[in-house]
Amino acid sequence: MPSKAQSLEPCAFCNIIEGTEPSYKIYETDYVVGFLDIQPARRGHVLIIPKVHIELFSQLPEKYAAALGDALVKVSKALTLALDNQALTVTLNQVYAQVVPHAHFHIVPAPDFRSTSTSARVGNNKVEVFPGRHQLDDDDAIEVAKMIKSRL
């Protein structure tokens, strides 16, 4: 069973694990939890975290690292099916750009180029890919979480 967070400062992710901070969980095992980002880069942006407070991914025990890998594959597949878009980015920040000091992965759906409202950099033409992060909409979060969970 995972150990409880060992930190002097409250960790937002540890609070989610313990259930003292609200979240839209979409995936959970004994070792990891996946939930929607509260400031998504794009609709369906998911975070996958270990259920142990370790800041650096490079210091994770093997069983947590393996569980993260398994979760990344399962959630990525469910996310691409839920949004009918196979394109996505999986990112890990370690120290650099790591806002919450708890090892975690981002799974961010790529723009859906079938939509006229989404654009990207094509050749020398600069167009917007990340329109900027925004606060997660509760109604949309409920819908997206349900869509993803139904495909796990």
Score class of each variant (00 low, 15 high):
Asp84Lys: 15
Glu55Arg: 09
Glu18Met: 10
Asn85Arg: 03
Lys126Cys: 08
Leu47Arg: 00
Lys74Met: 03
Leu72Ile: 09
His53Gly: 04
Asp139Leu: 12
His134Lys: 15
Thr118Glu: 14
Val99Pro: 05
Ala120Gly: 13
Gln94Trp: 01
Ile16Ser: 01
Val100Trp: 03
Ser117Phe: 10
Tyr64Ile: 05
Gly123Trp: 05
Val100Asn: 04
Gly34Cys: 05
Thr80Met: 10
Ser3Gln: 15
Lys25Cys: 07
Gln39Ser: 12
Ile54Ala: 05
Ala120Ser: 13
Ser76Phe: 01
Ala5Pro: 04
His134Tyr: 11
Ile38Val: 08
Ala65Lys: 04
Asp84Thr: 10
Val108His: 02
Gln6Cys: 10
Glu55Phe: 03
Tyr27Glu: 00
Asp30Ala: 15
Gly132Tyr: 07
Asn15Thr: 08
Arg133Ile: 13
His53Trp: 01
Leu47Ser: 03
Ala67His: 09
Gly132His: 02
Ile49Asp: 01
Lys25Ile: 09
Lys51Ser: 03
Ala66Tyr: 11
Gln59Lys: 15
Ala71Glu: 06
Phe113Tyr: 07
Asn15Lys: 13
His53Tyr: 00
Thr80Trp: 05
Leu152Trp: 09
Asn124Trp: 01
Ala5Cys: 15
Ala67Pro: 06
Ile26Gly: 02
Lys149Trp: 09
Leu81Ile: 08
Pro131Met: 06
Val75Met: 01
Pro61Trp: 00
Asp140Ser: 13
Asp139Cys: 07
Ile49Ser: 03
Gln94Gly: 08
Lys77Met: 05
Ser58His: 11
Leu60Pro: 03
Glu143Arg: 14
Pro131Gln: 12
Gly19Asn: 11
Leu88His: 15
Asn85Asp: 09
Ala87Ile: 12
Gly34Ile: 02
Val32Asp: 11
Gly44Asn: 00
Ala5Asn: 06
Val108Asn: 00
Gly69Phe: 14
Gln94Glu: 15
Thr116Phe: 07
Lys25Trp: 06
Val52Thr: 11
Lys25Pro: 08
